[in-house]
Design a protein around this nucleic acid. Structure first.
Length: 584
RNA sequence: GGCCCCGUAGCUCAGCUGGAUAGAGCAUCGGAUUUCUAAUCCGACGGUCACUGGUUCGAAUCCAGUCGGGGUCACCA
């Protein structure tokens, strides 16, 4: 239960009552009314802006409206006090019983706590990674991969029907380059002296193994074949080999897609012709000459007639070319067809995760979707900024040529997938991110992964200790679930419970905003609150979780920290991070 | 030059899509603790939310412009 939406509904009902009673006018718009936790805890447990929002349309003073609602709000179940404050806030205090009941909810739900029906089963398509199938994944891809994956998990938790998709860019010129590079390695595998890899081909040694496998499978069958014969074959073979490699890299990170869509297949199925024909029918495709960009002119600028899409009609800055001079489609054209395809598969809601260097591409894609779906489809593009790899504050040098190229695999092998995933999600997607090998593996509170994981481990540690001290029977799961939660009356304990009760609300807002990083900050808060309580037990022995002479109180406290583990476990699950039981 | 993102404490960043006196962690300073519950704890200092206007009951948040940083800019994906 999201208690904030719960009380929002209650407040809305109160308002309807006043409307029925004639105290407030008909037809008020209640959509802007919010119920949220006040920033200042002295203002109570929940607060609503209802009176202020309604003041103008109702033609009344906000404090008068607040007064109108206050007396009724006082008798709502769970509410123990109501105050009117400031310009017309309605602040409410909730009973300890109410909070204990919410704690019970957390215990009963386990890591499913926070699951929400907000999405109402609506279909959402999240496209992420979509790296070119021309080599292994590097760290730059990792952020988008983790972000997209966590966003998908988050939307899923919030009740959306999510599909994770990977768009395979296997139609452009670069896969021909890949095929040619593979052929060189193939000849090498057959024992030929290939010398240096020719300029313009991919020199990476990741092609060696698949080329050897090909030579082992087919022998010298392709050695003297015509290009027209070997090129398509090499292309297909290489793409498959690279995609296998990419899938493996992703699997190491725990990233799995539901659907892989091939650009080449789209083109071959005529989807691009179809999309373009549709636009042409609407008069949105024309032959024309673009103005040169304002300011400095590219040196190789020449006036050129091309086939253009009227993107300007849908909010873009210039019209965009859809065909190359050799007659093939531009990337944009096939991408239009791809997004139309997604829309037709039932995804009016689309999310694309791209690198920030593709920012200039957003407007045209959104313009295209507007045109292709008659305004019915929606695309939110999440741009991920660069990750700087550091070690003890010093940049890790990355150079393909020098061979110090850091692959995703290297990083995961070094620090583990859980650390990579968590750290990648500790910043907003559109902000840069430092990934310092030394820092992210440090066991200190400066390290957010450690801090959060440690809280989870500490809960389990206390559980083990309780079993030792009091006997496993005494503190069994059943005993904990049957605990007398009303024994939790300390202010700090109640604060921790209240914080945990925000989890459903955090899930919903993060999901709707497409911002998984909020979860990382929230988990940090829960961990801090829990560690804080634990530390208080050092000074004040009566606050320790395990009170040997008061089993009833111990069980209540164990229930509380069990809930902490549930909330943290639930959050880590959204991140695709495995909670640890123990740290040694 | 056009467009997009960013600008919040000395540093690294939050700020719940418009709420009340703008928060946290480092760092600095001042105390506590001399040990075990498992990787110390508490407090203080610190702000023109880049700037200027606008929208309204109310703006760090939305809009316009200015300044500064980054990205990007016609057949590469």
């Amino acid at each position: 239960m999201n208690l904030f939406t719960h009380f929002r509904d209650q407040i809305a009902a109160l308002i309807e009552e006043r409307v029925a009673a004639g105290d407030l006018p008909q037809g008020l718009d209640l959509s802007r009314i919010t119920v949220e936790p006040p920033r200042e805890t002295s203002h109570g447990d929940i607060t609503t802006n209802a009176a202020m929002v309604l003041a103008k349309p109702a033609g009344k003073n906000p404090r008068d409206i607040a007064a109108l609602l206050a007396s009724k709000a006082e008798s709502l179940p769970g509410v123990t006090g109501v105050e009117i404050a400031g310009p017309g806030f309605l602040n409410m205090r909730l009973s300890d019983d109410f909070w204990h009941a919410r704690l019970r909810d957390i215990l009963d739900s386990g890591v499913a706590y926070g699951d929400s029906a907000t999405g109402d089963g609506a279909k959402v398509n999240v496209e992420y990674v979509s790296a070119n199938p021309t080599g292994p994944m590097h760290v730059g891809h990792a952020r988008g991969a983790v972000f997209g994956d966590a966003l998908a998990l988050l939307l899923d938790k919030a009740g959306f029907d999510v599909t994770r998709e990977y768009y395979v860019n296997d139609a452009g010129a670069q896969v021909d380059v890949l095929a040619r590079s593979m052929r060189v390695r193939y000849l090498e595998a057959l024992g030929e002296d290939i010398g240096a890899i020719p300029e313009g081909l991919y020199p990476g040694d990741y092609l060696v193994a698949p080329a050897e496998a090909l030579a082992a499978r087919d022998g010298d069958k392709w050695k003297n074949a015509d290009e027209a014969t070997w090129l398509p074959m090499m292309r297909e073979y290489s793409i498959n080999a690279m995609m296998d490699m990419i899938r493996e890299d992703l699997a190491v990170m725990g990233v799995e897609h539901d659907v892989f869509t091939s650009e080449r297949a789209l083109v071959q199925a005529g989807k691009v012709d179809e999309a373009l024909a549709f636009l042409k029918d609407q008069g949105l495709i024309y032959e024309g000459v673009l103005e040169p960009p304002k300011g400095k002119l590219p040196d190789d600028w020449e006036e050129r007639e091309q086939t253009l899409f009227k993107a300007t009609q849908f909010g873009d800055d210039v019209d965009r070319p859809v065909a190359k001079s050799d007659g093939s489609w531009t990337y944009f054209a096939t991408d239009m067809a791809y997004h139309l395809d997604k829309y037709r598969r039932g995804y009016a809601d689309m999310i694309d995760v791209w690198g920030a260097d593709h920012g200039g591409y957003v407007k045209r894609m959104q313009a295209a979707i507007k045109a292709l779906t008659g305004g019915q489809g929606q695309l939110d593009v999440k741009l991920c900024q660069m990750v700087s790899l550091l070690d003890h504050g010093e940049p890790v040098k990355m150079s393909k040529r020098a061979g110090t190229f850091v692959t995703l695999r290297d990083v995961v092998d070094n620090v583990g997938k859980d650390v990579v995933r968590f750290i990648m999600l500790t910043r907003k997607n559109d902000a840069g991110l430092d990934f310092d090998f030394a820092k992210v593996t440090e066991q200190s509170k400066d390290n957010p992964v450690f801090y959060v994981q440690y809280a989870h481990a500490r809960v389990n540690s206390v559980m083990r200790m309780a079993a030792d001290e009091l006997g496993a029977e005494t503190v069994s799961i059943d005993a904990i679930h049957g605990a007398k939660l009303e024994r939790l009356s300390d202010e700090n304990e109640l604060q921790l419970i209240k914080l945990m009760c925000q989890w459903p609300r955090i899930v919903e807002s993060a999901a709707l905003a497409h911002e998984p990083h909020r979860i990382a900050f929230y988990l940090g808060e829960v961990a801090a609150s829990f560690h804080g309580l634990w530390n208080k037990g050092k000074d004040d022995k009566s606050l320790r979780f395990i009170m040997a002479d008061d089993v009833e109180l111990t069980l209540a406290r164990l229930a509380m920290i069990r809930a902490v583990a549930n909330v943290i476990g639930s959050g880590l699950k959204v991140f695709g991070v495995t909670p640890v039981e123990e740290m040694r």
